[in-house]
């Protein structure tokens, strides 16, 4: 029994030493928390702000600096603005870009379109790039974020910034993969419409929804179509008692098709 206890004590001491060393012998560094998916507000953004966003993405979420740094794991990007023009004429170039901006965008989405000599994957003779597609799962940049990084790259390499700030990101999905230039198809179902514009975030219908705005469960009983139309297009014109101004977005009129507005009004007026 004595031997047994000695062994137990010895084991506990050993484990205690390892745990103690790990806790107190070395500095405890708090690892960065998982990155948050950032919501972009591009509408109010200046070009400088957009470039700064690109820089943040470049140094942060994009994880670009892991390789594009002074250690030379990946090509230096300090002059990429000038170099890109030459790349387009390079016989090894396989992409479809016509301008520097397009080239840069393409290099982020399809890195193997042009591989700088000496930076290819081992054994592929510089035809395949080790860089991931920044829009894919791991980094997961949206279209707008890619544009911001391109703007930053152009700015930081001293080239002219040709990127335009993408607009209409209001209804941006997390993956942002929709093509923003294409108009949305009109929606005929009022419930889908309400879901698209997330009305239920503030308004309650049938016991479900938020309490920031008035309950709409029986709104048709007390308000007519004209009032409702005005309430959607110009929310601050009349404020129901007990609610605050400036809570509802004012751009519903821009975001909605006319037909959709009518469908929505029909629906709301019918809630009695």
């Amino acid at each position: 029994m004595r031997q047994f206890l000695t062994v137990v004590v010895f084991t506990l001491l050993t484990i205690g030493f390892f745990a103690g060393y790990s806790n107190f012998g070395i500095p405890q560094i708090e690892p960065a928390p998982p990155p948050k998916e950032e919501k972009l507000d591009l509408g109010s953004m200046t070009m400088d702000g957009f470039i700064a966003l690109g820089e943040r993405l470049f140094n942060g979420k994009g994880t670009c600096t892991l390789c594009h740094n002074a250690l030379g794991r990946a090509p230096e990007l300090a002059t990429v603005g000038e170099v890109a023009a030459g790349r387009l004429k390079d016989p090894r170039y396989e992409g479809e870009a016509g301008t520097v901006e397009e080239y840069l965008t393409e290099s982020l989405i399809d890195p193997s379109a042009f591989v700088v000599i000496g930076f290819g994957k081992k054994g592929t003779n510089d035809t395949e790039s080790p860089m991931p597609n920044v829009a894919s799962g791991g980094i997961g940049m949206s279209v707008a974020e890619v544009a911001a990084v391109v703007a930053y790259l152009q700015d930081s390499s001293g080239a002219e910034v040709t990127v335009e700030i993408p607009q209409d990101i209001g209804a941006q999905e997390d993956d942002g993969e929709e093509d923003e230039s294409e108009p949305r198809e009109a929606i005929g179902d009022p419930k889908e419409l309400m879901a698209l514009f997330t009305c239920d975030a503030c308004h309650m219908i049938g016991g479900e929804g938020g309490e920031v705005g008035p309950d709409l469960t029986q709104i048709g009983a007390s308000r007519d179509r004209d009032y409702l139309r005005r309430a959607i297009l110009d929310p601050n014109a009349d404020i129901a008692e007990g609610f605050e101004e400036d809570m509802m977005p004012e751009d519903m009129g821009e975001a909605m098709y006319v037909a959709e507005l009518e469908i929505l009004l029909d629906y709301l007026a019918g809630l009695k």
């Binding site: 484990i15 390892f18 745990a19 790990s22 560094i29 690892p31």
Partner: peptide, 21 residues
């Protein structure tokens, strides 16, 4: 989802090691 610090991990490992022993 966060990555624990080394001390935290060492403590979990130590507890597990004692249970194992």
């Amino acid at each position: 989802a966060f990555t624990p610090t080394l001390g935290y991990a060492a403590n979990v490992v130590s507890v597990a090691a004692i249970i194992f022993m």
